[in-house]
């Protein structure tokens, strides 16, 4: 019994271009596991923090203009929205750092690859602990609770 449906047009029509395919990530998603997603997160947090770093060096460099100019720039950081942005930034830095330690352990310890998922759990746990220590202080400063 022949029962076949064709979807997506005839074979001579190429699929449309997507940004993902331009990045070499086209086609369907590969259903990798924790290792794949931790790598992707490591890359995203790294790129994001790097972009921030470029801007941060520039904003600190305004200290050369005058004390008033520098303080004005720092004033921008005190805005509550920036405070929340800083929280996200610190989260990205901490995650990238902890996963980086995990990668070093996987590389250096002969049993590292075997226990990489356990190490990932450790990364998440330490991340939550550190953020639990940081957020109350930082958000307190941001919203004037302290």
């Amino acid at each position: 019994m022949k029962d076949a449906e064709t979807r997506g047009g005839d074979p001579t029509t190429p699929a449309k271009t997507t940004t993902l395919s331009k990045l070499g990530l086209g086609g369907t998603l590969y259903r990798g596991s924790w290792g794949q997603w931790s790598w992707l997160l490591h890359r995203i947090t790294g790129a994001a923090v790097f972009i921030f770093l470029l801007l941060h060096i520039l904003d600190v460099a305004t200290i050369r203009i005058s004390p008033g100019a520098f303080n004005a720039v720092m004033g921008i950081y005190r805005h509550p929205v920036m405070g929340l942005g800083e929280a996200v930034l610190v989260a990205a830095v901490v995650l990238h750092a902890l996963n980086g330690v995990r990668i070093i352990i996987v590389d250096a310890w002969s049993q590292g690859a075997k226990y990489h998922k356990h190490l990932l759990v450790g990364v998440v746990v330490v991340f939550l602990i550190l953020m639990a220590g940081f957020l109350p202080v930082h958000l307190g400063n941001t919203f004037g609770w302290r």
């Binding site: 064709t6 979807r7 997506g8 047009g9 005839d10 074979p11 001579t12 029509t13 190429p14 699929a15 449309k16 271009t17 997507t18 395919s21 331009k22 070499g24 990530l25 086209g26 086609g27 369907t28 590969y30």
Partner: peptide
């Protein structure tokens, strides 16, 4: 899952070539 030659019957474009424009031809 990677880029492919935009022209169906054209010559291969090596990695050093121009950006390609479509995913692999095909359908589900």
């Amino acid at each position: 899952g990677a880029e492919s030659s935009g022209e169906m019957a054209g010559a291969a474009q090596p990695r050093t070539g121009k950006a390609r424009t479509s995913t692999a031809p095909g359908y589900w």
